[in-house]
């Protein structure tokens, strides 16, 4: 057998949606390799999550469950997972490219002494060899690789595969081992307020140096708010993050976040190549800039040449009207 292992992400007892997307990628590989999709989930009291995995397309679900696994520990979880990968003939091991996936799968691949490819957007299996496609240089290029060592490990970019549905897999449970933890999560601090996470926002409104000073970002925040609650997030160029106007968590581009929203506004952003790398896959790009020669207009679908302090207030009003009349 040549099974495809999915390491599921369970936080606070609930299954994270990207895990079901990873099952979709795993099913693609399993249909080519002739194996089954086996999901492994770690935690303490995770019956609901493992039931969801079984109903979401995993043929077999293994819960590594117990009090010692209440909080995430990369070293302890990786060790227990590797045992199950081996016991279940895993020839590919997939996990979502999330904060936990980026922490855990490299550790698993190291223990398996095998290769790993991350932030994968396409998977393949040809002639028994697994392959993957991933963005490199922050999306300035795309690399396709073929695994030459088994098992093949890959993290899958969220929001890139449909979530898998349907199935009636079999769930089994093994006790979480207790033992010395090298690293362990002590506390999770929820982000303040009801801010929409940048990477998940349907609309990103980003501002740059053209706004002249930190306080003027109110204009950017107001435009984001005009779309209604939970729709838009504020982004920023590297220059304004480095200047301390905005937190680094809002930076879009190379050395910041790569975003791909349906709608992106670049306001007072000239469009340095590092910034373009981080937003060029947005579906629709709008640029507002005083300088008609700014590089941002080369990637923008729609551009307005003008002063942000005049154009944006009018745009806020117009968007508010559109939203109110929906």
């Amino acid at each position: 057998m040549s099974n495809i292992i999915v390491i599921a992400e369970v936080r606070g007892g609930s299954l994270k949606r990207p895990s079901l997307e990873v099952i979709t990628a795993a099913k693609q590989l399993a249909s080519a390799s002739g194996g089954q999709v086996v999901a492994i989930a770690c935690g303490n009291g995770i019956d609901a999550a493992t039931a969801e995995l079984a109903a979401g397309g995993a043929a077999k679900v293994i819960a590594i469950d117990g009090p010692s696994f209440t909080e995430y520990s990369g070293d302890a979880w990786a060790k227990a997972i590797v045992e199950q990968v081996k016991a279940n003939d895993g020839t590919a091991v997939l996990m979502a490219h999330t904060a936990m996936g980026k922490d855990l799968l490299p550790r698993v691949s190291g223990l398996l002494d095998t290769g790993i490819i991350t932030d994968v957007i396409e998977v393949s299996c040809e002639g028994g060899a697994y392959g993957a496609k991933k963005p490199v240089f922050a999306g300035k290029a795309t690399m396709t690789v073929k695994a030459t060592k088994s098992p093949f490990c890959a993290t899958i970019r969220p929001n890139n595969f449909e979530a898998s549905t349907g199935g009636s897999g079999e769930v089994s449970k093994v006790d979480a081992p207790s033992g010395d933890l090298l690293s362990v999560v002590k506390e999770i601090i929820a982000a303040g307020g009801d801010k929409t996470p940048l990477a998940e926002a349907k609309v990103v409104v980003a501002g740059g140096r053209g706004l002249k000073e930190a306080d003027n970002f109110k204009l950017i925040e107001d435009l984001a708010a005009a779309f209604g609650p939970g729709v838009a997030a504020v982004g920023a160029s590297r220059a304004v993050c480095d200047a301390g106007w905005r937190p680094h968590s809002e930076q879009v581009g190379q050395t910041g976040k790569v975003v791909s929203p349906p709608l992106y506004f670049a306001i007072g952003i000239s469009g340095a190549i590092q910034h373009l790398a981080g937003m060029r896959t947005a579906r629709t790009i709008v640029a507002i800039n005083k300088d008609a020669d700014a590089p941002i207009f080369k990637v923008a679908d729609y551009g307005i040449v003008g002063d942000a302090f005049e154009v944006v207030p009018a745009l806020i009003k117009a968007i508010e009207e559109v939203v109110a009349n929906r």
Partner: peptide
């Protein structure tokens, strides 16, 4: 020994040309 080999490296597809809608408000 390498655990994987590169099959190809490609540039992403270029964006379709956009347009300047106009100037100012």
């Amino acid at each position: 020994a390498a655990a994987m080999e590169i099959v190809s490296l490609e540039l992403p597809p270029a964006r379709a040309d956009g347009r300047i809608i106009g100037e100012g408000v």
